[in-house]
Design a protein around this nucleic acid. Structure first.
Length: 286
DNA sequence: CCCCAGTCCTGCGGGC
DNA sequence: TGCCCGCAGGACTGGG
C-alpha cells in the first residue's frame, strides 16, 4: 500500500527519466477492467506527445511528471500501483505505458494488480483546484510541529485517524499511522484535543523519524508482495514494523501482545501497555 | 465540522 | 479439489 516512503522510493527510482521526451501514452489490452484515466487517452496524447518531462516530483502519495508545457501527469498508485522502467512482473496487470525518447529508458510502465490506481493529466489551474493547498495539507516530511498542532489541536477525532486525513497533511496511510503513534507512545484512539504540547512534539518527531527511516529502507513490502521498488526489489522497513499486522505478537518494547482494533473501517494495531498510559493521561486533559 | 457505510478492484487464504 | 467468503485499504461520495 504505497504511502509516502514507498512513493518517494518510486519517485527516486524513476527520477532518471527527467529530461526525457514523451512519445506517446498507450494502454495495453488486458482482460481486466481498465484503470481510471482522465481525460481520455486520445486527449492526453494530444497534450503530452513531444513534451519533455522536466522533473519527477512527489505530492504526498502521488507521483507528478512535470512537463515543459506546465501540465502535470499525476499518478496515484493507491493500493497496488507500481511504476517500473522495464520488466513488469506480468503483462496482465500492466495498465499504462509511457513511451519515451532522449533518455535512459524507452518506457515508463504503470503496473497495478487491483487496478484502483488513477492517472490524470492536469493543467496548472486544474492542479491548483484539485490538489492545491486548499484541498491537501503540507507534506508529512515538511510540516512543522507547530503547524501539525495548529491543524489538529481542536479536533475531537482520534489521532490515528486524523493523521491519515490528507487534508491535514499528505503522505501518511494506515500502516505508518499505526507505527507512528506507537513510537510516539500515544493511544491511537486518543482524541487530538486531549493531546498536550509534549505529545505534539513527540508525534511530529516520530512522523519524521519513521518516514525517513522507511525511505532509507525503501519502504515496506508486505506479505502480499505487491510493493517493490523500480528495480523490482522488496523494501526493508517491514522488518522494523513494531505493531502493523502483528496482532498477538509481543510488543518489542514491553512484551505485551499487540492488539488490533478497527477505526474508521480500517485496522489499527497498537500496544495496549505502551500506548495505554498515555491515553489515560491524554483523555483526562494532558 | 465530523462520522459512517458503500464503492471501486483483484488476489489470497481460511473454512468446509 | 473447489467454492464461498472475508479481508486488504486510498480516495471518494452520499446521507445523516
Amino acid at each position: 500500500m504505497p504511502e509516502l516512503p514507498e512513493v518517494e522510493t518510486m519517485r527516486r527510482g524513476v527520477a532518471v527519466i527527467a529530461g526525457s521526451r514523451i512519445v506517446r501514452v498507450w494502454r495495453p489490452r488486458v482482460r481486466l477492467r481498465p484503470i481510471q484515466i482522465t481525460p481520455e487517452l486520445a486527449r492526453i496524447n494530444r497534450r503530452v506527445a513531444g513534451r519533455h518531462i522536466d522533473r519527477v516530483a512527489r505530492l504526498g502519495k502521488r507521483i507528478l511528471l512535470e512537463l515543459d508545457s506546465l501540465d502535470r501527469v499525476v499518478i496515484e498508485p493507491r493500493m497496488t500501483g507500481r511504476l517500473l522502467l522495464a520488466n513488469p512482473p506480468n503483462r496482465s496487470h500492466l495498465r499504462l505505458v509511457f513511451e519515451l525518447e532522449e533518455g535512459p529508458s524507452p518506457e515508463l510502465l504503470f503496473w497495478d494488480v487491483r487496478g484502483l490506481g488513477v492517472v490524470r493529466l492536469l493543467a496548472p489551474e486544474q492542479f491548483a483546484d484539485q490538489l492545491g493547498a486548499d484541498r491537501l495539507g503540507p507534506d508529512a516530511l515538511e510540516i512543522s510541529a507547530a503547524e501539525l498542532r495548529r491543524r489538529l489541536a481542536a479536533s475531537r477525532r482520534p489521532v490515528k485517524v486524523a493523521l491519515m486525513d490528507q487534508r491535514v497533511l499528505v503522505g501518511i496511510g494506515n500502516l505508518y499511522a499505526s507505527e507512528i503513534v506507537h513510537r510516539a507512545g500515544i493511544h491511537p484512539a486518543s482524541p487530538c484535543n486531549a493531546l498536550g504540547g509534549t505529545h505534539w512534539e513527540r508525534l511530529h518527531a516520530e512522523i519524521r523519524a519513521v518516514l525517513e527511516e522507511a525511505i532509507l529502507l525503501q519502504g515496506s513490502t508486505l506479505a502480499d508482495g505487491t510493493y517493490r521498488n523500480v528495480q523490482g526489489e522488496s523494501g526493508g522497513f517491514q522488518e522494523r514494523h513494531r505493531v502493523y499486522q502483528r496482532s498477538g505478537r509481543p510488543c518489542g518494547t514491553c512484551g505485551v501482545p499487540i492488539v488490533r482494533i478497527v477505526q474508521g473501517q480500517r485496522s489499527t494495531f497498537f500496544c495496549p501497555s505502551c500506548q495505554r498510559k498515555r491515553f489515560q493521561t491524554a483523555v483526562q486533559g494532558l
